[in-house]
């Protein structure tokens, strides 16, 4: 992501320091992670200390300071999914991918995240891969879903 693009996102919010989180979200959405150069640019343009930006970028869950995998696996661990066995689904996916929630594998194939509620509790437990919902997913079925991704 080059500085021009970062500047455009900053300009969209009139360069206001109070829009810092909105600007970082804009970069995250477009680039899927927050490169250090982009953070430095934001710091410089908004006159916000880098230390504060670093706190924000690590405080909120939406931000990632490392590149994400090609495919994003979200496993819902909301209470409704939890009581329906989401932990067993998560454990199986961890074993299959070799990564823990918050991690990306070395081939940049999968990133694994837990989420707190996807708003479709009737389908719990739920696994979402690249935005597609897989409802009532049993641990044994996760491998069938994940094998389709390159």
């Amino acid at each position: 992501m080059d500085n021009d693009r970062v500047d455009q996102i900053i300009d969209k919010y009139q360069g206001e320091a109070s829009s810092l989180i909105q600007i970082l979200l804009g970069i995250q959405t477009e680039n899927h992670w927050l490169p250090k150069e982009a953070l430095e640019r934001v710091s410089e343009k908004l006159q916000v200390p880098l230390a504060r930006i670093q706190h924000i970028a690590t405080f909120y869950k939406a931000f990632s300071l490392v590149p994400k995998g090609r495919h994003e696996i979200h496993i819902c661990v909301g209470t409704a999914c939890h009581v329906r066995g989401a932990t067993r689904v998560l454990d199986t996916v961890r074993d299959l991918t070799g990564i823990k929630p918050g991690e990306t594998d070395l081939d940049l194939k999968f990133s694994l995240e837990t989420v707190n509620c996807l708003g479709c509790c009737a389908l719990g437990p739920v696994m979402e891969v690249d935005g597609k919902t897989h409802g009532k997913i049993a641990p044994g079925k996760t491998a069938d879903v994940l094998k389709n991704f390159e």
């Binding site: 200390p49 230390a51 504060r52």
Partner: peptide, 8 residues
Amino acid sequence: NAVGFVDR
């Protein structure tokens, strides 16, 4: 601002 908090 040489030192800051990270994470939560």
